[in-house]
Amino acid sequence: MPVIEAKNLTFTYAGSNKPAIKNIDFSIDRGEFIVITGPSGCGKTTLVRCFNSLIPSFYRGEISGKIDVLNLNASKSNTSTLAKNVGFVFQNPENQLFSLSVERDVAFGPENLGLKRDETRQRVDWAMNIAGIEDLRETAPYELSGGQQQRAAIACVLAMKPEIIVLDEPTSFLDPLSSYQILEAIADLRDEVGITIILIEHRLDLVSKYADRIMIMDDGQIAMEGPPSSVYSEEAKLLGVGIPKVSMLFNLLKKDGYNLGETPVTIEEASQKIRKCF
């Protein structure tokens, strides 16, 4: 059953003369792990801003078509109703933190849901543990490094245990090991509780192994869509998509006449395919 459905969705920011997204059609099922990628400025953030009515409630402009989230008409619902079920990690984590300590920020969401104190405390501990920020409880957001802010923003969203989590370039401030650990934890949540993950990312090497589907956007539209192996082509590279280097390697070899089969997505797949040749 789809949890998000877009039909012919088009949006133009007020003051802009061309749509930032146009005629977008897709449907995302419960429990899917979707990666959205595409050139800088192609409309990725704009698209997800429609999922919790930030567009058109906060960012004004002209919207047309349909966007349903958990069977609600998202463009007509208010952001706080949706916020319970759709958690957002924004591209700039700093804008998401407003308390005087990390712990207060992480507790804010669960408290607002009206949860009991024990439950709140449990969730806060759990979320801070996954994000690796237990030792920053008392720290104020402005005292955090960029990556620590990013982790705090992720913890805030996890503590809400929403049905859908949207992460907009979450790894951009994270060190490689924490990117890996946090993505693994999020993928586990998907497997265990069946939450739906929508992740915007340029570094496909980091996320390919989790993705059920990759959506490549270009100039406000969905240009290619499918499982990773089917979209990691030369064509995707031409769009500026950062397909993993192991996938690129196989595309380069193919060009030179060495066809080692379907384009691999992970290091393990690539390794096996090469091994078979020797």
Partner: peptide, 18 residues
């Protein structure tokens, strides 16, 4: 340093016996 090795390096390492 909480890094992860580069992809190609990891691929090469996985084929170290070759």
């Amino acid at each position: 340093a909480s890094l992860m090795s580069p992809q190609i390096s990891l691929l090469m390492a996985s084929l170290g016996d070759l």
